[in-house]
Design a binder for these strands. Sequence first.
DNA 1: TTGTAGGCGTTATCAG
DNA 2: CTGATAACGCCTACAA
Lengths: 335, 335
Amino acid sequence: MRKPTIQDVARKAGVGVGTVSRVLNNHPAVKAATREGVMAAIAALEYTPNPHARRVAGGRSYTVSVMLPVLSTEFYTRLLSGLEAAFQEARYDVAIFPLLDRSRLERYLGSHTLAYQADGLVMATHDLTRLLRDRRTLTPQPTVLVDAHSPDVDCAFMDNVTGGRLAGEHAVKAPGAVYAMWVETELDQLFPARVFEDRRSGFLSALDRAGRPLATEVTSAFDTLAARNAAAAVLDRAQAEASGAPCTVFAAADLLASALLDEAHARGLRPGVDLRVIGFDDQPWAAARGLTTLHQPVEGMGHEAATLLLSRLNGYRGAPRARRFEPHLVVRDTA
Amino acid sequence: MRKPTIQDVARKAGVGVGTVSRVLNNHPAVKAATREGVMAAIAALEYTPNPHARRVAGGRSYTVSVMLPVLSTEFYTRLLSGLEAAFQEARYDVAIFPLLDRSRLERYLGSHTLAYQADGLVMATHDLTRLLRDRRTLTPQPTVLVDAHSPDVDCAFMDNVTGGRLAGEHAVKAPGAVYAMWVETELDQLFPARVFEDRRSGFLSALDRAGRPLATEVTSAFDTLAARNAAAAVLDRAQAEASGAPCTVFAAADLLASALLDEAHARGLRPGVDLRVIGFDDQPWAAARGLTTLHQPVEGMGHEAATLLLSRLNGYRGAPRARRFEPHLVVRDTA
DNA sequence: TTGTAGGCGTTATCAG
DNA sequence: CTGATAACGCCTACAA
């Protein structure tokens, strides 16, 4: 029960291996009839080309590596979906390298897999290009950044400043006082990121432009309990300072908004009536709870990053390209 | 600046490629002097063997695949460390496949990487052997289960029943009432796991053997806020039912124990004096907070799983082996 | 448009 | 012990 090889396919289809190879790499110069015969043989034998042999033969391995921080947050799940969809379409496999901690990074740097296996590399959130270059652990291979940007390489990133600005512009449409809840800057010192700083600066600029002050802002860890406490703190302030119009609270992540909704509910406050809430992320449950929030085209960003890399793999030479993605406001019941 | 090949090394060392290959695979039949010369050449050239070529020629790629559920919990980080350490020692690379959702599983099943790249497969927590066999997506390759068990394949697993029992035996050493906090059964229906059921059955059997009743038990989601609420519920009960002796609470996960400690503190209760707390996991912070808890040799389990797989890869044929690992109680201040 | 042959970097076999 | 040399599965000229 050996795995079938290109030889087997050629024999079965009654053609030469060269022809099989051509249909595999859909080379144009193959007669339609021949192609179909080969395809049939491939299907019959359940043949899959051996990527290692492909790689050795001088070509490519049709796999790319993706390095990203901790998985399991919705953002990275969606990002991975976007990337994988695009790569799969182009018949590329993806190898995942989660950067759980520093030692793992070291391990990857010395890894054969990173150095050899992949035809290209996508790095999410953290720009490690310089690090990799210094270590010269890998033959320079096409690289693309996603959810991060650098002038040196292709990148696809989310414009969190714009996201914050959109939230701010929506917030000031109502007369009440404005509050905000932020997330503490990233946990891991090794890989600083600045999404929340960006959201904040966009938000503040919008308020500023409207001549509106920010009443109070609180910062919370990215965890449900901390969020609930922060929500309570905000509502304490808001209720103490209550003027006529309902206040607006911008929660810079839906996790925070969820806690705020819970806390408001516990206090008998009706979101959308007694207070306005604007979230950020548009998590799956947001629609059900009527949360007005910012939707990020995360899959789209992943897809675009993959496309950028694929174009390089197909030989594109040119200056680094930057693709910016904008969140958009989804207005629902809470604001 | 082409990457050096085995040819380059052979030339530089003044030997044949066969010899270089032998030292690479540390074949015994190489004179020490020759070996050193080759090693020197390898170092000088910064040569690294091309795993794809190895695969094509010799049949093995020196990489293994690891399929596991969501990363980012401490347990899996430690598990991965144990696995990676052992594999790295044997000069194997590891490819990680996070099973974030069902669609991703489908994707993996059709993946070249899973089918070709790996010489072996380790599956954590979920036994997907049957699924893979049915799909026959891959040439049957050596497989090992870790944190799960099955009579059909090698496995290394944690004995949670024993862990629960140890907690129970420690709990009944003191006279007060006994309470327990459990974690809701796993979120994802696709991959049911039963760690908490096991911990519970061990715990209950110990109480039973000691002729002691369980006063009250509560179940919580695996999340800090839910845990805090559950902790409050337990303490409400405990304070209402208070007898003379301090009660004992077994929190089946340190996440729960942490919330319990917080809630106790908020109520002015002194752990270790006014109530006893036993956790489970021995998370990094447990020592600092003086938490009595169960330590699991997670890295050891990972290491052993890797060792089992490596022995298969080295040709071991024999009945499936099961390696059981036991948590042990770490007694600190809280109980 | 297609088949044949050489080569990719290693391992494995087989003489010496 | 070691050096040739034939695979390994595929791609890519080159020739037909």
